[in-house]
Nucleic acid binder design. Sequence first.
DNA 1: CGAAAATTTGACATGACTCAACTGGAGTGG
DNA 2: CCACTCCAGTTGAGTCATGTCAAATTTTCG
Lengths: 196, 196
Amino acid sequence: MTSEEAIKQFLKNRVEVSEQEADVFAQAFREKKLRRKQLVVQPGFLTKHRYYVVDGVLRSFITDDSGQETTIALAVKDWWITDYNSFIYQQPATLFVEALTNATVLQLSYEDEQKLKTANPKYETFFRIVAERGLAAQQRRIITGLTQSAEQRYESFVERYPEFLHDIPQYILASYLGMSTEFLSRIRNNRVSKKG
Amino acid sequence: MTSEEAIKQFLKNRVEVSEQEADVFAQAFREKKLRRKQLVVQPGFLTKHRYYVVDGVLRSFITDDSGQETTIALAVKDWWITDYNSFIYQQPATLFVEALTNATVLQLSYEDEQKLKTANPKYETFFRIVAERGLAAQQRRIITGLTQSAEQRYESFVERYPEFLHDIPQYILASYLGMSTEFLSRIRNNRVSKKG
DNA sequence: CGAAAATTTGACATGACTCAACTGGAGTGG
DNA sequence: CCACTCCAGTTGAGTCATGTCAAATTTTCG
């Protein structure tokens, strides 16, 4: 499947559009091939695009004063990723967005997105749906973070996203799940201080 | 300010609409007076509405097997609250939504919301903006949760939402911030095990 | 005013972190 | 194709942040 087919199908799965409307939509995007570790968003710079993942894995993360990285979001095929606070408000980013594997993404610029939404309300509906579903997903993430232990969070992740595990280094997964690399290692080896 | 004025102003601050468009929008809502502890969303039931807070404080929360409550979201004037996973997908709720104080809200039913969005793309734009900003706010919340200590989370909250503190019992704030009641108490009294 | 709920405090327990050392692959270049 | 390096992952030991439990105190509100 080409990138264009992928984004068109993604659109069609969410709003009813004609073939021509799907074409117009797809043409606002630009395909970008990313190499592992390549950055597309960096703190201090304006986030000009949002990214639709066609293939590969990306993540957003933040670093603290001591250089410690914390992974905020992960994205695989059919997911979107960017620094939303930066992109939506068109202010400097605080996050990095990088490819964890070689990847293919479709980038959509802020301006082109505005044009799409102005040109045809169906595109507006589409972005509303994408945002709402993201909101719901993040609500689930917040619940998990507040209510589950490190071990439960890991197990929930494995259950929900088994396909992710291959491509994500453990130290990145650990920071996404809110625990140290070492502790995740212990969990995976069932050596979490269970006495006896 | 009446509830109708409040929601019209809220709309106008986000999209350009005529007075008549603002009226139509406002009339889709129904005002509801809530008493402290009154529930508007309950697990197992369909979430028929989203709620715009005109006055007072509401929260959403979840309970685990042992009856422990965890506060997922807080809402004051001009905030929206509901169980998004339930409302958006029109599936049974997993959260409670309750008033923490006597409150005035405007409720919008799922069906009326669909009608609004179909009738006029400006309303569609409005809900897209609301969802996107919610997404950005939740991204900030996730970052805070992953990168800050309990004490820092409390201090960030106090700085950002000083006005909330009056109306929110500490045990609820503690669960919102992801810590125990007792630990928040110690933080507030500066008795967080600082040796010496 | 009185009962119930919320907060505080102390003592203790523990989940999770840090640091440091070790292991094991994956490249890379000779 | 071996030796070297580098980075991710593992393991152990010790520590710390935060939780739990229970009792005392204070506040709230019916």
